[in-house]
Design a protein around this nucleic acid. Structure first.
Length: 557
RNA sequence: GCCCUCGUAGCUCAGGGGAUAGAGCGACUGCCUCCGGAGCAGUAGGCCGCAGGUUCGAAUCCUGUCGAGGGCACCA
Protein backbone atom coordinates (compact mmCIF):
# COMPACT_ATOMS: atom_id res chain seq x y z
CA UNK A 1 0.00 0.00 0.00
CA UNK A 2 0.94 3.58 -0.60
CA UNK A 3 1.62 4.49 3.01
CA UNK A 4 4.25 1.81 3.45
CA UNK A 5 5.92 2.94 0.24
CA UNK A 6 5.98 6.51 1.51
CA UNK A 7 7.29 5.48 4.90
CA UNK A 8 10.20 3.62 3.35
CA UNK A 9 10.91 6.59 1.08
CA UNK A 10 11.14 8.83 4.12
CA UNK A 11 13.25 6.28 5.96
CA UNK A 12 15.78 5.99 3.17
CA UNK A 13 15.88 9.77 2.90
CA UNK A 14 16.80 9.90 6.56
CA UNK A 15 19.53 7.36 6.03
CA UNK A 16 20.93 9.42 3.15
CA UNK A 17 20.80 12.55 5.29
CA UNK A 18 22.73 10.70 7.94
CA UNK A 19 25.47 9.58 5.57
CA UNK A 20 25.75 13.04 4.04
CA UNK A 21 26.08 14.50 7.50
CA UNK A 22 22.90 16.61 7.44
CA UNK A 23 21.64 14.43 10.28
CA UNK A 24 23.77 12.89 13.00
CA UNK A 25 23.91 9.13 13.33
CA UNK A 26 21.21 7.56 15.49
CA UNK A 27 18.96 4.53 15.13
CA UNK A 28 15.80 5.43 13.25
CA UNK A 29 12.76 4.13 15.12
CA UNK A 30 9.94 2.42 13.25
CA UNK A 31 7.21 4.80 12.21
CA UNK A 32 4.14 4.98 10.03
CA UNK A 33 2.67 7.62 7.81
CA UNK A 34 -0.43 9.27 9.22
CA UNK A 35 -3.53 10.83 7.76
CA UNK A 36 -3.49 14.54 8.53
CA UNK A 37 -6.72 15.73 10.09
CA UNK A 38 -6.91 18.62 7.67
CA UNK A 39 -6.51 18.27 3.95
CA UNK A 40 -4.39 21.43 3.72
CA UNK A 41 -1.76 19.30 5.37
CA UNK A 42 -1.56 16.99 2.41
CA UNK A 43 -2.47 13.37 1.86
CA UNK A 44 0.01 11.82 4.26
CA UNK A 45 2.22 13.14 6.98
CA UNK A 46 4.73 11.99 9.53
CA UNK A 47 5.89 13.37 12.84
CA UNK A 48 9.15 11.44 12.74
CA UNK A 49 11.18 14.64 12.84
CA UNK A 50 9.53 15.61 16.12
CA UNK A 51 10.16 12.19 17.56
CA UNK A 52 13.87 12.02 16.79
CA UNK A 53 14.71 15.69 17.41
CA UNK A 54 15.97 14.95 20.89
CA UNK A 55 18.32 12.17 19.80
CA UNK A 56 19.56 14.29 16.93
CA UNK A 57 20.10 17.22 19.27
CA UNK A 58 18.51 19.46 16.67
CA UNK A 59 15.38 21.55 16.41
CA UNK A 60 12.47 19.47 15.06
CA UNK A 61 12.04 21.75 12.08
CA UNK A 62 15.72 21.47 11.17
CA UNK A 63 15.43 17.68 11.26
CA UNK A 64 12.39 17.91 9.02
CA UNK A 65 14.20 20.23 6.61
CA UNK A 66 17.12 17.82 6.38
CA UNK A 67 14.78 14.93 5.61
CA UNK A 68 12.89 16.90 2.98
CA UNK A 69 16.13 17.94 1.35
CA UNK A 70 17.24 14.33 1.09
CA UNK A 71 13.81 13.32 -0.11
CA UNK A 72 14.07 15.83 -2.94
CA UNK A 73 17.13 14.01 -4.25
CA UNK A 74 14.99 11.00 -5.04
CA UNK A 75 11.65 12.26 -6.34
CA UNK A 76 9.03 9.55 -6.60
CA UNK A 77 6.58 9.80 -9.46
CA UNK A 78 3.39 9.84 -7.42
CA UNK A 79 4.51 12.56 -5.03
CA UNK A 80 3.43 16.04 -6.02
CA UNK A 81 4.84 17.96 -3.11
CA UNK A 82 6.55 17.72 0.22
CA UNK A 83 6.61 20.43 2.83
CA UNK A 84 7.48 21.03 6.43
CA UNK A 85 4.70 22.49 8.52
CA UNK A 86 3.91 23.43 12.08
CA UNK A 87 6.42 22.29 14.68
CA UNK A 88 8.09 19.88 12.23
CA UNK A 89 5.53 17.72 10.46
CA UNK A 90 6.49 16.48 7.02
CA UNK A 91 3.47 16.64 4.78
CA UNK A 92 3.30 14.80 1.50
CA UNK A 93 0.86 15.54 -1.29
CA UNK A 94 0.16 12.89 -3.88
CA UNK A 95 0.10 13.66 -7.57
CA UNK A 96 -3.05 14.39 -9.51
CA UNK A 97 -2.20 11.53 -11.82
CA UNK A 98 -1.98 9.08 -8.92
CA UNK A 99 -5.27 10.31 -7.52
CA UNK A 100 -7.29 10.03 -10.72
CA UNK A 101 -5.76 6.63 -11.30
CA UNK A 102 -7.82 5.47 -8.33
CA UNK A 103 -10.88 5.46 -10.56
CA UNK A 104 -9.23 2.75 -12.62
CA UNK A 105 -8.09 0.83 -9.55
CA UNK A 106 -11.56 0.84 -8.06
CA UNK A 107 -13.38 -0.13 -11.24
CA UNK A 108 -10.96 -2.92 -11.99
CA UNK A 109 -11.21 -4.27 -8.46
CA UNK A 110 -15.00 -3.97 -8.44
CA UNK A 111 -16.45 -6.04 -5.62
CA UNK A 112 -12.93 -6.62 -4.37
CA UNK A 113 -12.22 -2.92 -3.83
CA UNK A 114 -11.43 -2.56 -0.15
CA UNK A 115 -10.35 -6.15 0.23
CA UNK A 116 -6.74 -6.95 0.78
CA UNK A 117 -4.63 -9.99 1.27
CA UNK A 118 -3.35 -10.23 4.80
CA UNK A 119 0.39 -10.34 5.24
CA UNK A 120 -0.16 -13.26 7.60
CA UNK A 121 -3.61 -14.71 6.87
CA UNK A 122 -5.14 -16.80 9.61
CA UNK A 123 -7.86 -19.36 9.94
CA UNK A 124 -10.15 -17.59 12.37
CA UNK A 125 -13.29 -18.65 14.13
CA UNK A 126 -15.69 -16.06 15.46
CA UNK A 127 -18.18 -17.31 18.01
CA UNK A 128 -21.03 -14.95 18.76
CA UNK A 129 -24.68 -14.67 19.82
CA UNK A 130 -24.67 -18.19 21.36
CA UNK A 131 -28.07 -17.66 22.97
CA UNK A 132 -29.73 -20.33 25.08
CA UNK A 133 -32.39 -22.09 23.06
CA UNK A 134 -34.93 -21.27 25.75
CA UNK A 135 -36.58 -18.29 24.14
CA UNK A 136 -36.63 -15.86 21.25
CA UNK A 137 -33.67 -13.56 20.72
CA UNK A 138 -33.79 -10.15 22.35
CA UNK A 139 -32.15 -6.86 21.49
CA UNK A 140 -28.88 -7.71 23.16
CA UNK A 141 -28.47 -10.72 20.92
CA UNK A 142 -29.25 -8.51 17.94
CA UNK A 143 -26.37 -6.26 18.79
CA UNK A 144 -23.88 -9.12 18.88
CA UNK A 145 -25.34 -10.60 15.74
CA UNK A 146 -24.65 -7.37 13.86
CA UNK A 147 -21.26 -6.74 15.40
CA UNK A 148 -20.04 -10.32 15.13
CA UNK A 149 -21.15 -10.75 11.55
CA UNK A 150 -19.60 -7.51 10.35
CA UNK A 151 -16.41 -8.28 12.25
CA UNK A 152 -16.33 -11.62 10.44
CA UNK A 153 -16.86 -9.85 7.10
CA UNK A 154 -14.01 -7.45 7.86
CA UNK A 155 -11.68 -10.28 8.77
CA UNK A 156 -12.57 -12.05 5.54
CA UNK A 157 -12.03 -8.87 3.56
CA UNK A 158 -8.59 -8.64 5.12
CA UNK A 159 -7.58 -11.95 3.66
CA UNK A 160 -8.37 -14.35 6.47
CA UNK A 161 -10.42 -17.51 6.39
CA UNK A 162 -13.31 -17.06 8.77
CA UNK A 163 -15.97 -19.32 10.24
CA UNK A 164 -18.97 -18.07 12.14
CA UNK A 165 -20.12 -20.30 14.92
CA UNK A 166 -23.10 -20.36 17.26
CA UNK A 167 -22.67 -22.34 20.48
CA UNK A 168 -25.99 -23.84 21.44
CA UNK A 169 -26.26 -24.05 25.23
CA UNK A 170 -28.60 -27.01 25.10
CA UNK A 171 -27.42 -28.64 28.32
CA UNK A 172 -27.84 -27.98 31.99
CA UNK A 173 -30.21 -26.54 34.51
CA UNK A 174 -31.67 -23.83 32.30
CA UNK A 175 -32.68 -26.35 29.67
CA UNK A 176 -34.30 -28.47 32.33
CA UNK A 177 -36.31 -25.51 33.63
CA UNK A 178 -37.34 -24.75 30.10
CA UNK A 179 -38.50 -28.33 29.52
CA UNK A 180 -40.45 -28.21 32.77
CA UNK A 181 -42.06 -24.92 31.78
CA UNK A 182 -43.19 -26.25 28.39
CA UNK A 183 -44.44 -29.44 30.02
CA UNK A 184 -46.43 -27.44 32.55
CA UNK A 185 -48.07 -25.37 29.80
CA UNK A 186 -48.79 -28.52 27.87
CA UNK A 187 -50.64 -30.04 30.79
CA UNK A 188 -52.38 -26.73 31.39
CA UNK A 189 -53.70 -26.78 27.83
CA UNK A 190 -55.04 -30.24 28.56
CA UNK A 191 -57.05 -28.78 31.40
CA UNK A 192 -54.79 -29.56 34.33
CA UNK A 193 -53.90 -26.97 36.86
CA UNK A 194 -50.13 -26.81 36.92
CA UNK A 195 -47.62 -24.45 38.47
CA UNK A 196 -44.71 -23.15 36.42
CA UNK A 197 -41.65 -24.38 38.34
CA UNK A 198 -39.58 -22.08 40.49
CA UNK A 199 -37.26 -20.07 38.23
CA UNK A 200 -39.09 -21.35 35.16
CA UNK A 201 -39.97 -19.52 31.97
CA UNK A 202 -43.12 -17.41 32.16
CA UNK A 203 -43.14 -15.92 28.67
CA UNK A 204 -46.13 -16.17 26.37
CA UNK A 205 -44.04 -17.91 23.76
CA UNK A 206 -43.81 -20.93 26.04
CA UNK A 207 -47.59 -21.32 25.74
CA UNK A 208 -47.33 -20.98 21.97
CA UNK A 209 -44.77 -23.71 21.84
CA UNK A 210 -46.86 -25.96 24.05
CA UNK A 211 -49.78 -25.39 21.69
CA UNK A 212 -47.70 -26.33 18.66
CA UNK A 213 -46.53 -29.48 20.34
CA UNK A 214 -50.03 -30.33 21.45
CA UNK A 215 -51.28 -29.99 17.90
CA UNK A 216 -48.57 -32.28 16.69
CA UNK A 217 -48.55 -35.06 19.28
CA UNK A 218 -51.97 -34.71 20.90
CA UNK A 219 -52.33 -35.86 24.50
CA UNK A 220 -49.78 -38.62 24.14
CA UNK A 221 -47.66 -37.14 26.92
CA UNK A 222 -50.47 -36.60 29.39
CA UNK A 223 -50.10 -39.86 31.25
CA UNK A 224 -46.41 -40.56 31.14
CA UNK A 225 -43.86 -40.18 33.94
CA UNK A 226 -42.92 -36.55 34.56
CA UNK A 227 -39.33 -37.14 33.56
CA UNK A 228 -40.29 -38.55 30.23
CA UNK A 229 -42.68 -35.69 29.50
CA UNK A 230 -40.15 -33.04 30.52
CA UNK A 231 -37.39 -34.65 28.47
CA UNK A 232 -39.60 -34.72 25.40
CA UNK A 233 -40.77 -31.14 25.87
CA UNK A 234 -37.23 -29.98 26.38
CA UNK A 235 -36.06 -31.51 23.12
CA UNK A 236 -39.10 -30.42 21.12
CA UNK A 237 -39.17 -26.96 22.64
CA UNK A 238 -35.50 -26.50 21.98
CA UNK A 239 -35.84 -27.61 18.39
CA UNK A 240 -38.50 -24.98 17.84
CA UNK A 241 -36.63 -22.20 19.64
CA UNK A 242 -33.50 -22.94 17.70
CA UNK A 243 -35.42 -22.77 14.43
CA UNK A 244 -36.97 -19.51 15.57
CA UNK A 245 -33.54 -18.04 16.34
CA UNK A 246 -32.11 -19.29 13.10
CA UNK A 247 -34.91 -17.68 11.07
CA UNK A 248 -34.50 -14.39 12.91
CA UNK A 249 -30.77 -14.37 12.27
CA UNK A 250 -31.30 -15.27 8.65
CA UNK A 251 -33.72 -12.41 8.28
CA UNK A 252 -31.07 -10.18 9.83
CA UNK A 253 -28.56 -11.32 7.22
CA UNK A 254 -26.45 -13.48 9.51
CA UNK A 255 -25.60 -17.01 8.45
CA UNK A 256 -23.64 -19.24 10.78
CA UNK A 257 -21.35 -21.90 9.36
CA UNK A 258 -21.67 -24.13 12.40
CA UNK A 259 -24.28 -24.52 15.12
CA UNK A 260 -22.42 -26.36 17.81
CA UNK A 261 -24.31 -28.32 20.45
CA UNK A 262 -23.01 -28.22 24.01
CA UNK A 263 -24.88 -31.45 24.71
CA UNK A 264 -22.91 -33.22 22.01
CA UNK A 265 -19.74 -32.58 23.98
CA UNK A 266 -21.20 -34.44 26.92
CA UNK A 267 -22.69 -37.22 24.80
CA UNK A 268 -19.48 -37.90 22.95
CA UNK A 269 -17.32 -37.97 26.04
CA UNK A 270 -15.34 -34.88 25.16
CA UNK A 271 -16.09 -33.32 28.52
CA UNK A 272 -14.93 -36.41 30.36
CA UNK A 273 -11.76 -36.48 28.31
CA UNK A 274 -10.82 -32.91 29.13
CA UNK A 275 -11.39 -33.53 32.84
CA UNK A 276 -9.22 -36.64 32.58
CA UNK A 277 -6.51 -34.67 30.82
CA UNK A 278 -6.49 -32.04 33.56
CA UNK A 279 -6.34 -34.79 36.14
CA UNK A 280 -3.30 -36.32 34.45
CA UNK A 281 -1.65 -32.90 34.29
CA UNK A 282 -2.10 -32.76 38.06
CA UNK A 283 -4.16 -29.58 38.20
CA UNK A 284 -7.22 -31.04 39.93
CA UNK A 285 -8.03 -31.62 43.59
CA UNK A 286 -11.02 -32.73 45.67
CA UNK A 287 -12.63 -30.39 48.14
CA UNK A 288 -16.10 -30.32 49.72
CA UNK A 289 -17.15 -33.20 47.53
CA UNK A 290 -16.41 -31.35 44.31
CA UNK A 291 -13.51 -31.56 41.90
CA UNK A 292 -11.61 -28.30 41.50
CA UNK A 293 -9.27 -26.92 38.87
CA UNK A 294 -6.34 -25.02 40.34
CA UNK A 295 -6.70 -21.98 38.05
CA UNK A 296 -4.96 -19.80 40.63
CA UNK A 297 -1.72 -21.38 39.42
CA UNK A 298 -2.42 -19.79 36.07
CA UNK A 299 -3.45 -16.25 36.89
CA UNK A 300 -7.02 -16.60 38.13
CA UNK A 301 -8.07 -15.05 41.44
CA UNK A 302 -9.81 -18.22 42.67
CA UNK A 303 -9.95 -21.90 41.85
CA UNK A 304 -12.91 -23.18 39.87
CA UNK A 305 -15.17 -26.15 40.24
CA UNK A 306 -14.98 -28.51 37.32
CA UNK A 307 -17.15 -31.37 38.65
CA UNK A 308 -20.02 -30.40 40.92
CA UNK A 309 -20.50 -31.93 44.34
CA UNK A 310 -24.29 -31.94 44.14
CA UNK A 311 -24.66 -34.35 41.24
CA UNK A 312 -21.06 -35.17 40.28
CA UNK A 313 -21.82 -33.65 36.90
CA UNK A 314 -19.31 -31.60 34.95
CA UNK A 315 -19.59 -27.87 35.59
CA UNK A 316 -19.95 -25.49 32.66
CA UNK A 317 -16.23 -24.75 32.68
CA UNK A 318 -15.53 -28.37 31.76
CA UNK A 319 -17.80 -28.09 28.74
CA UNK A 320 -16.24 -24.77 27.75
CA UNK A 321 -12.82 -26.37 27.83
CA UNK A 322 -13.95 -29.41 25.90
CA UNK A 323 -15.41 -27.01 23.34
CA UNK A 324 -12.15 -25.10 23.25
CA UNK A 325 -10.19 -28.30 22.60
CA UNK A 326 -12.60 -29.15 19.82
CA UNK A 327 -11.97 -25.77 18.20
CA UNK A 328 -8.23 -26.35 18.37
CA UNK A 329 -8.66 -29.80 16.88
CA UNK A 330 -10.45 -28.20 13.95
CA UNK A 331 -7.30 -26.23 13.17
CA UNK A 332 -8.24 -22.64 13.96
CA UNK A 333 -5.27 -20.40 14.50
CA UNK A 334 -7.29 -17.74 16.20
CA UNK A 335 -10.45 -17.97 18.26
CA UNK A 336 -12.58 -14.91 18.83
CA UNK A 337 -15.27 -15.01 21.48
CA UNK A 338 -17.72 -12.13 21.36
CA UNK A 339 -19.59 -12.01 24.66
CA UNK A 340 -21.54 -9.61 26.84
CA UNK A 341 -20.16 -7.59 29.72
CA UNK A 342 -21.52 -10.13 32.21
CA UNK A 343 -18.85 -12.55 30.98
CA UNK A 344 -15.81 -10.54 31.86
CA UNK A 345 -15.02 -12.65 34.92
CA UNK A 346 -15.35 -15.72 32.72
CA UNK A 347 -12.60 -14.36 30.49
CA UNK A 348 -9.97 -14.55 33.21
CA UNK A 349 -11.20 -17.96 34.25
CA UNK A 350 -10.97 -19.28 30.69
CA UNK A 351 -7.53 -17.82 30.10
CA UNK A 352 -6.24 -19.49 33.24
CA UNK A 353 -7.90 -22.80 32.43
CA UNK A 354 -6.49 -22.74 28.91
CA UNK A 355 -3.01 -22.32 30.35
CA UNK A 356 -3.71 -25.22 32.66
CA UNK A 357 -4.36 -27.32 29.57
CA UNK A 358 -0.92 -26.34 28.37
CA UNK A 359 -2.31 -24.21 25.57
CA UNK A 360 -1.62 -20.61 24.76
CA UNK A 361 -4.46 -18.16 25.39
CA UNK A 362 -2.70 -15.69 23.09
CA UNK A 363 -4.61 -17.26 20.23
CA UNK A 364 -7.90 -16.56 21.97
CA UNK A 365 -9.50 -13.18 21.97
CA UNK A 366 -12.34 -12.39 24.31
CA UNK A 367 -14.19 -9.35 23.05
CA UNK A 368 -16.40 -7.97 25.77
CA UNK A 369 -19.32 -5.90 24.57
CA UNK A 370 -21.46 -3.67 26.73
CA UNK A 371 -25.20 -4.10 27.13
CA UNK A 372 -28.17 -2.69 25.33
CA UNK A 373 -30.37 -0.76 27.74
CA UNK A 374 -33.95 -1.00 26.72
CA UNK A 375 -36.29 1.77 27.73
CA UNK A 376 -39.76 2.90 26.83
CA UNK A 377 -40.28 6.63 27.14
CA UNK A 378 -37.34 6.79 29.51
CA UNK A 379 -38.68 3.99 31.70
CA UNK A 380 -36.49 0.94 31.98
CA UNK A 381 -37.87 -2.22 30.40
CA UNK A 382 -36.61 -5.56 31.60
CA UNK A 383 -35.38 -8.00 29.03
CA UNK A 384 -36.09 -11.08 31.06
CA UNK A 385 -36.89 -14.19 29.11
CA UNK A 386 -38.53 -15.82 32.08
CA UNK A 387 -41.10 -13.16 32.79
CA UNK A 388 -41.64 -12.62 29.10
CA UNK A 389 -41.64 -8.86 29.35
CA UNK A 390 -38.97 -8.60 26.73
CA UNK A 391 -39.40 -7.04 23.36
CA UNK A 392 -38.08 -9.64 21.00
CA UNK A 393 -35.57 -8.92 18.34
CA UNK A 394 -38.08 -10.02 15.71
CA UNK A 395 -40.56 -7.42 16.92
CA UNK A 396 -37.89 -4.76 16.65
CA UNK A 397 -37.16 -5.79 13.08
CA UNK A 398 -40.88 -5.60 12.29
CA UNK A 399 -40.89 -2.02 13.48
CA UNK A 400 -37.68 -0.55 12.13
CA UNK A 401 -36.50 -2.92 9.41
CA UNK A 402 -33.29 -4.85 9.01
CA UNK A 403 -31.13 -2.12 7.48
CA UNK A 404 -31.92 0.51 10.11
CA UNK A 405 -31.49 -1.95 12.96
CA UNK A 406 -28.20 -3.31 11.71
CA UNK A 407 -26.82 0.12 11.05
CA UNK A 408 -27.94 1.40 14.43
CA UNK A 409 -26.16 -1.44 16.22
CA UNK A 410 -23.03 -0.96 14.15
CA UNK A 411 -22.73 2.75 14.61
CA UNK A 412 -21.33 2.61 18.12
CA UNK A 413 -18.31 0.97 19.62
CA UNK A 414 -19.02 -2.29 21.41
CA UNK A 415 -17.30 -0.84 24.48
CA UNK A 416 -20.14 1.60 24.77
CA UNK A 417 -23.42 0.62 26.35
CA UNK A 418 -26.26 1.34 24.00
CA UNK A 419 -29.53 2.99 24.92
CA UNK A 420 -32.55 1.89 23.02
CA UNK A 421 -35.76 3.74 23.67
CA UNK A 422 -38.70 1.97 22.10
CA UNK A 423 -40.77 5.13 21.80
CA UNK A 424 -38.04 6.78 19.81
CA UNK A 425 -37.16 3.74 17.77
CA UNK A 426 -39.55 4.41 14.93
CA UNK A 427 -38.72 8.08 14.77
CA UNK A 428 -35.02 7.37 15.00
CA UNK A 429 -35.27 4.74 12.35
CA UNK A 430 -36.66 7.27 9.89
CA UNK A 431 -33.76 9.54 10.65
CA UNK A 432 -31.26 6.74 10.66
CA UNK A 433 -28.07 7.78 8.88
CA UNK A 434 -28.24 4.52 6.97
CA UNK A 435 -30.63 6.22 4.57
CA UNK A 436 -28.14 8.98 4.00
CA UNK A 437 -25.63 6.43 2.76
CA UNK A 438 -28.17 4.42 0.78
CA UNK A 439 -29.46 7.60 -0.80
CA UNK A 440 -26.04 8.42 -2.18
CA UNK A 441 -25.90 4.96 -3.71
CA UNK A 442 -29.38 5.24 -5.23
CA UNK A 443 -28.64 8.71 -6.53
CA UNK A 444 -25.69 7.41 -8.50
CA UNK A 445 -27.87 4.77 -10.11
CA UNK A 446 -30.22 7.55 -11.03
CA UNK A 447 -27.45 9.59 -12.61
CA UNK A 448 -26.26 6.68 -14.70
CA UNK A 449 -29.83 6.01 -15.77
CA UNK A 450 -30.24 9.65 -16.69
CA UNK A 451 -27.08 9.53 -18.78
CA UNK A 452 -28.38 6.50 -20.61
CA UNK A 453 -31.65 8.29 -21.32
CA UNK A 454 -29.66 11.17 -22.77
CA UNK A 455 -28.04 8.71 -25.13
CA UNK A 456 -24.71 8.71 -23.34
CA UNK A 457 -23.08 5.33 -23.14
CA UNK A 458 -20.23 4.82 -20.76
CA UNK A 459 -16.98 4.48 -22.68
CA UNK A 460 -14.38 1.88 -21.79
CA UNK A 461 -11.85 3.13 -19.26
CA UNK A 462 -8.90 3.16 -21.65
CA UNK A 463 -10.70 5.77 -23.76
CA UNK A 464 -11.48 8.05 -20.84
CA UNK A 465 -9.44 11.11 -19.94
CA UNK A 466 -9.37 10.83 -16.16
CA UNK A 467 -7.18 13.93 -15.95
CA UNK A 468 -10.38 15.87 -16.68
CA UNK A 469 -11.20 15.39 -13.01
CA UNK A 470 -9.90 18.66 -11.57
CA UNK A 471 -12.53 20.04 -9.23
CA UNK A 472 -11.66 19.99 -5.55
CA UNK A 473 -14.88 18.12 -4.79
CA UNK A 474 -13.97 15.44 -7.30
CA UNK A 475 -10.55 15.03 -5.76
CA UNK A 476 -11.90 14.96 -2.21
CA UNK A 477 -14.27 12.18 -3.19
CA UNK A 478 -11.42 10.28 -4.78
CA UNK A 479 -9.19 10.64 -1.77
CA UNK A 480 -11.87 9.22 0.51
CA UNK A 481 -12.57 6.41 -1.94
CA UNK A 482 -8.90 5.56 -1.85
CA UNK A 483 -9.08 5.11 1.92
CA UNK A 484 -11.43 2.14 1.85
CA UNK A 485 -8.76 -0.60 1.89
CA UNK A 486 -7.09 1.12 4.82
CA UNK A 487 -10.42 1.54 6.64
CA UNK A 488 -11.19 -2.15 6.22
CA UNK A 489 -7.76 -3.19 7.35
CA UNK A 490 -7.89 -1.00 10.46
CA UNK A 491 -11.43 -2.05 11.31
CA UNK A 492 -10.44 -5.70 11.08
CA UNK A 493 -7.13 -5.41 12.90
CA UNK A 494 -8.59 -3.43 15.76
CA UNK A 495 -11.79 -5.49 15.86
CA UNK A 496 -13.81 -2.29 15.53
CA UNK A 497 -16.55 -2.86 13.00
CA UNK A 498 -18.28 0.38 13.98
CA UNK A 499 -15.60 2.29 12.10
CA UNK A 500 -17.16 1.24 8.82
CA UNK A 501 -20.37 3.19 9.43
CA UNK A 502 -18.32 6.32 9.94
CA UNK A 503 -16.44 5.68 6.75
CA UNK A 504 -19.70 5.10 4.89
CA UNK A 505 -21.06 8.43 6.06
CA UNK A 506 -17.91 10.31 5.13
CA UNK A 507 -17.89 8.81 1.66
CA UNK A 508 -21.59 9.54 1.15
CA UNK A 509 -21.12 13.09 2.39
CA UNK A 510 -18.30 13.77 -0.07
CA UNK A 511 -20.37 12.33 -2.86
CA UNK A 512 -23.28 14.63 -2.02
CA UNK A 513 -20.93 17.63 -1.98
CA UNK A 514 -19.53 16.57 -5.32
CA UNK A 515 -23.06 16.32 -6.65
CA UNK A 516 -23.72 19.88 -5.60
CA UNK A 517 -20.56 21.20 -7.25
CA UNK A 518 -20.28 19.10 -10.37
CA UNK A 519 -22.85 18.18 -12.94
CA UNK A 520 -22.11 14.78 -14.37
CA UNK A 521 -23.98 14.73 -17.67
CA UNK A 522 -23.06 17.81 -19.70
CA UNK A 523 -22.19 18.80 -23.28
CA UNK A 524 -18.52 18.28 -22.51
CA UNK A 525 -18.11 14.68 -23.62
CA UNK A 526 -14.68 14.04 -22.15
CA UNK A 527 -15.66 15.47 -18.77
CA UNK A 528 -18.96 13.59 -18.79
CA UNK A 529 -17.15 10.32 -19.36
CA UNK A 530 -14.62 11.00 -16.65
CA UNK A 531 -17.34 11.89 -14.17
CA UNK A 532 -19.48 8.91 -15.07
CA UNK A 533 -16.52 6.73 -14.22
CA UNK A 534 -15.90 8.67 -11.03
CA UNK A 535 -19.46 8.17 -9.80
CA UNK A 536 -19.35 4.53 -10.84
CA UNK A 537 -16.26 4.10 -8.72
CA UNK A 538 -17.89 5.95 -5.83
CA UNK A 539 -20.88 3.66 -6.10
CA UNK A 540 -18.61 0.64 -5.91
CA UNK A 541 -17.07 2.06 -2.74
CA UNK A 542 -20.48 2.69 -1.20
CA UNK A 543 -21.81 -0.71 -2.20
CA UNK A 544 -18.80 -2.55 -0.84
CA UNK A 545 -18.95 -0.65 2.43
CA UNK A 546 -22.66 -1.32 2.86
CA UNK A 547 -21.95 -4.94 2.02
CA UNK A 548 -19.50 -5.17 4.90
CA UNK A 549 -22.17 -3.74 7.15
CA UNK A 550 -24.70 -6.24 5.89
CA UNK A 551 -26.95 -3.43 4.70
CA UNK A 552 -28.63 -3.36 1.30
CA UNK A 553 -27.47 -0.98 -1.43
CA UNK A 554 -30.67 0.02 -3.24
CA UNK A 555 -30.80 1.26 -6.84
CA UNK A 556 -33.74 3.45 -5.90
CA UNK A 557 -35.52 4.38 -2.71
C1' G B 1 -14.10 -4.53 49.18
C1' C B 2 -11.76 -6.36 44.40
C1' C B 3 -12.06 -6.58 38.83
C1' C B 4 -13.90 -4.81 33.73
C1' U B 5 -16.21 -0.91 30.53
C1' C B 6 -17.88 4.00 29.98
C1' G B 7 -18.17 9.73 31.46
C1' U B 8 -16.61 14.45 24.84
C1' A B 9 -22.15 19.73 21.97
C1' G B 10 -29.21 19.98 24.46
C1' C B 11 -29.71 14.18 23.02
C1' U B 12 -27.23 9.59 20.78
C1' C B 13 -22.24 8.84 19.86
C1' A B 14 -17.14 9.11 16.82
C1' G B 15 -12.04 10.43 17.69
C1' G B 16 -7.87 6.61 21.90
C1' G B 17 -0.10 10.52 21.81
C1' G B 18 0.25 15.21 17.25
C1' A B 19 -1.51 20.72 13.86
C1' U B 20 -7.97 24.75 14.60
C1' A B 21 -11.88 18.21 18.96
C1' G B 22 -16.04 15.87 14.81
C1' A B 23 -20.85 13.39 12.94
C1' G B 24 -26.10 12.30 13.30
C1' C B 25 -30.51 14.07 15.69
C1' G B 26 -32.67 18.64 17.78
C1' A B 27 -32.60 24.54 17.24
C1' C B 28 -31.94 28.70 13.83
C1' U B 29 -30.73 31.03 8.34
C1' G B 30 -30.52 30.32 3.37
C1' C B 31 -30.69 26.92 -1.43
C1' C B 32 -35.00 23.14 -6.41
C1' U B 33 -36.47 26.88 -14.61
C1' C B 34 -31.11 22.34 -14.61
C1' C B 35 -28.61 14.41 -13.40
C1' G B 36 -33.39 12.35 -6.97
C1' G B 37 -34.38 18.27 -1.51
C1' A B 38 -34.11 11.03 2.14
C1' G B 39 -29.89 16.44 -0.40
C1' C B 40 -26.57 21.03 -0.03
C1' A B 41 -24.44 25.58 2.32
C1' G B 42 -24.23 28.18 6.87
C1' U B 43 -25.17 29.87 12.41
C1' A B 44 -25.48 28.79 17.51
C1' G B 45 -23.93 25.13 20.95
C1' G B 46 -17.55 22.17 24.38
C1' C B 47 -12.79 24.03 30.96
C1' C B 48 -13.29 16.30 26.40
C1' G B 49 -16.41 14.40 34.71
C1' C B 50 -12.67 16.45 38.39
C1' A B 51 -7.40 16.70 40.36
C1' G B 52 -2.46 15.51 39.80
C1' G B 53 1.57 13.19 36.77
C1' U B 54 4.51 11.42 32.18
C1' U B 55 5.82 14.01 27.31
C1' C B 56 8.59 18.70 22.88
C1' G B 57 3.06 17.75 22.67
C1' A B 58 -2.62 14.66 26.45
C1' A B 59 -9.66 14.31 25.00
C1' U B 60 -6.09 10.17 24.08
C1' C B 61 -1.06 7.24 28.39
C1' C B 62 -0.39 6.71 34.21
C1' U B 63 -2.26 7.58 39.38
C1' G B 64 -6.06 9.22 42.37
C1' U B 65 -11.13 10.76 42.79
C1' C B 66 -16.44 11.26 41.71
C1' G B 67 -20.55 9.34 38.76
C1' A B 68 -23.07 5.29 35.51
C1' G B 69 -23.35 0.12 33.98
C1' G B 70 -21.60 -4.87 34.60
C1' G B 71 -19.06 -8.83 37.11
C1' C B 72 -16.87 -11.23 41.67
C1' A B 73 -21.65 -18.95 41.86
C1' C B 74 -20.88 -26.13 42.36
C1' C B 75 -25.78 -20.58 37.00
C1' A B 76 -24.76 -20.32 31.61
Amino acid sequence: MIQTQLASLVRSAMERAQSSGDLPAFPIPPFQMERPARKEHGDWSTSIALEVAKQAKMKPRDVADAIVKALGADPAEHIAGVEVAGPGFINIRLSHHWLTGLVRDVEQAGEAWGRSSATAPEKIQVEFVSANPTGPMHLGHGRWAAVGDTLARLLEASGNTVEREFYVNDFGVQMLKFGQSVAARYLELLGQKVEIPEGGYQGRYVIDIAKEILLEVGDKYRNVPDDERVAFMRVEGQRRMLLNQRLTLQRFGVEFDVWFSERSLHDEGAVERVVELLKQLGHLYEKDGALWLRTTDFGDDKDRVIVRSTDRMAAYLAADLAYFMDKLRRGFERLIYLVGADHHGWKREMQAAIRALGEDPEHCEFLIGQFVHLTRGGESVKMSKRTGEAVTFDELLDEVGVDAARYHFLRVSMDQSLNFDLEEVVRQSQENPVYYVQYAHARISSIVKHAREQGVTIAPLENVALEELQHESELDLLRKLGELPEAVEVGARRREPHRMTRYAEELASLFHSFYRDCRVVTDDEALTQARLHLVTAAQIGLRNTLGLLGVSAPESM
